[in-house]
Design a protein around this nucleic acid. Structure first.
Lengths: 218, 218
DNA sequence: CTACGATTCGAACTACTGTTTTAAACGCAG
DNA sequence: CTGCGTTTAAAACAGTAGTTCGAATCGTAG
């Protein structure tokens, strides 16, 4: 019978996640992964079929719960009579990734590093995967913000939605990579980052429309 | 005698830049580069010494002018009597990358793709290079914003500075990658993106400080 | 022209990649 | 015990990676 939790499978996934986050997907060899996980080389192809399939498995293991939490938060907000405010929507979007690194510190941190590493390296392989995984979430949040910000046009809102995502992604990468913070390794202050990030995003989203023809200085 | 402009060198740099932007640095082979550039394989090691040296050369060719333009814009603002406003500082930071893609459309676009691709793939190799290249610019803009936003504490300002960078980077990647826009290939509307981006960032930077203990929802 | 350094070329080298195959062992359900 | 899914071990596969080398070629100074 297929064991519900194969130790070998999990060890491979965790080792791969760690090494991908450190050195990138392309440069990490299966031999490095199986050596780190202390399993046999052939085990990867036995359990996953190929390196590409392993890569997808590494991502899907984490992205799924994260996006589900985002949708759940929005569901809670929308059960109320009054529509959610901008602040609430932003918080609902940001909180899961903060919570993720807080609850499951070790694993959360590793995956956060992987996200920061991969965000753009994405290239051919992952652009599709990410688009598929995020499409539903973006759609929901776009709708929520449309109601929370009725004075914004669709195009304006679309841009600001992307700015929000960019600010969030970079804040994660920043707090993981660039802030040495507090002596020992591996303790990014994502909660602190979010406390600063939310007012920033809210103000940006609520900002009045673009200036017409900004001064040209040459 | 060493020719001032080696056609082979430039062809290698451009081909490498293009291929790196498409498929990443690690997965792009020297054979693919030299084939695309229609030069001999050994030419890379002859002109650059190694693949790593070639990679550094590709980045440095573009980042230098970009950051110099940012500093120049700030210089102009600071020759006046009154200190620059928030809007002016943000524009000074954003404008060069927009201008870059507008003036030299082909090359600018390729490098923009490369930036979007590399932003995080950075890994061991480039984190140091980027830190070195950006250190001066960040320092200057931090100082300028400190004066333009006197009510912000150093920590708050530091975070918002990073949010700004994140929003900018993502806006670039977004307008390059994710917006199909207007029929044919290769025409990202970075000017349109900036028109939307600046008010967003300004509002975020000018926002009042963080809320204390945001509502916990579980 | 000759001579010489810079450049290009073709070919090879070593190392490592993902994958597959063989065989033998392990652990546990029927 | 007999099976069967799982895991290991060792080896080999074909393909590709970065790098190196010696000879051929180029461009120009003397």
């Amino acid at each position: 019978m297929k064991p519900l939790l194969s130790s070998t499978r999990e060890r491979i996934l965790s080792a791969a996640e760690r090494l991908f986050a450190e050195g990138g997907v392309a440069t990490t060899s299966l031999r490095a992964i199986t050596s780190q996980a202390r399993v046999n080389l052939a085990a990867v192809n036995y359990h996953f079929g190929s390196k590409d399939a392993l890569i997808e498995a590494v991502y899907e293991r984490r992205i799924g719960p994260l996006n589900r939490a985002r949708l759940r938060n929005l569901d809670v907000l929308e059960t109320r009579a009054e529509p959610p405010t901008v602040v609430e929507v932003v918080e609902a979007f940001v909180e899961p990734i903060v919570d993720f690194s807080a609850h499951d510190a070790k694993q959360g941190l590793v995956f956060m590093r992987l996200l920061a590493q991969t965000y753009a390296e994405a290239a051919q392989h992952f652009r599709k995967l990410f688009a598929r995984e995020y499409a539903g979430v973006i759609k929901r949040y776009r709708a929520a913000l449309t109601h929370a910000l009725p004075h914004l046009g669709p195009s304006e809102l679309e841009w600001r939605l992307q700015f929000m995502i960019g600010a969030v992604n970079h804040a994660v990468a920043d707090s993981v990579y660039l802030r040495p913070l507090a002596g020992d390794a591996a303790a990014p202050d994502l909660r602190g980052a979010a406390r600063e990030l939310v007012p920033f995003i809210v103000a940006g989203l609520e900002a009045r429309g673009p200036r017409l023809a900004p001064a040209n200085r040459h």
